[in-house]
Design a protein around this nucleic acid. Structure first.
Length: 273
DNA sequence: ATCATCCCCTGATGGC
DNA sequence: TGCCATCAGGGGATGA
């Protein structure tokens, strides 16, 4: 899936194509995504409206419309949003087509259908998917005191904690591994045992790794592409993710792989004691 | 409350 | 060649 850097790169790439555009037509394919496609709300609230702003919150893209409605798109594991000229042939797993007033269109393509979209508007009675999200990694309230407070005396592995969107958003499996390597902390370390200085380090390294990944255009493992269909290059800088059996770039020890809470976890046994 | 497991879905890959 | 198991960047439900 796209994590924070990939969604940020997609957001910046889409911006010039979508901001200011009127949506003249929306066509939905027959299959639903992780959640049912809100077909009626798309036609009634989004179609005919103008996109006045596109932004990112956590791993969501937020399309703010001129009529007060808002379109939320989550890409799940394999979701893509691309901009194409009208009449581009339909591709396998294209699910939603947004036609613009300038002859271009935006398509939502998602092989595994773990993505979903939500339409929000005044007085709707839906649960807000953004309501329970923790801070962004770049916000001031993501800091060592906050993390120490939330961690308490719990025994949860620090890697899972960093991947919990109620604690901090945007960090998925790749970047959790990379951030902990950069912080020299073992992924299974219980959060109750992480001291303030180590939390400070995790905060600083989170920002450093994510910032660097954004600058590189994100990580392309197999199927992530940005809005223009280009890959990212951060995979070339990955220190541990996907590198089991290879040498640590710092100490030449062999990178190990272990499953934690069902997710592949990579670490250097020497650098991350 | 906390934490691990399972599951949604498709496709790529590797072993036999 | 086919068949089966395993694995993927998310995240929510479930149950111990």
């Amino acid at each position: 899936m796209p994590e924070l850097p990939e969604v940020e790169v997609i957001c910046q790439g889409l911006k010039p194509y979508v901001e200011g555009r009127f949506i003249t037509e929306i066509i939905c394919g027959p299959t639903d995504l992780r959640l049912p496609i809100p077909r009626n709300a798309l036609q009634e609230r989004i179609c005919g409206a103008r996109i006045i702003n596109l932004s990112r919150r956590a791993k969501y893209l937020l399309f703010e419309m001129d009529n007060g409605s808002r379109l939320l798109i989550h890409l799940g594991m394999t979701g893509r949003l691309g901009i194409f000229p009208n009449k581009t042939p339909q591709a396998l797993h294209d699910h939603i087509f947004f036609y613009f007033d300038d002859g271009m269109e935006m398509r939502f393509n998602d092989t595994r259908r773990f993505g979903f979209i939500v339409v929000q508007y005044l007085d709707d009675d839906q649960v807000d998917p953004l309501a329970k999200l923790g801070p962004e990694p770049f916000w001031d309230d993501f800091n060592a005191d906050y993390l120490k407070e939330r961690a308490g005396k719990r025994l949860q592995p620090v890697k899972n904690f960093l991947m919990d969107s109620q604690v901090v958003v945007g960090i998925g499996n790749i970047y959790a591994n990379e951030i902990l390597f950069a912080s020299s902390i073992h992924p299974t370390m219980p959060i109750g045992s992480v001291n303030l200085k180590q939390w400070q380090n995790i905060v600083a390294k989170s920002r450093q790794v994510l910032k660097r990944a954004i600058e590189s255009g994100g990580t392309t493992i197999s199927d992530y592409l940005n809005a223009s269909g280009k890959p990212g290059y951060f995979q070339l800088e990955l220190a541990v993710y996907g590198r089991a059996g290879e040498e640590c770039r710092k100490c030449q020890s062999i990178i190990e792989k272990q499953t934690i809470a069902g997710r592949a976890t990579y670490f250097c046994p020497h650098c991350q004691q």
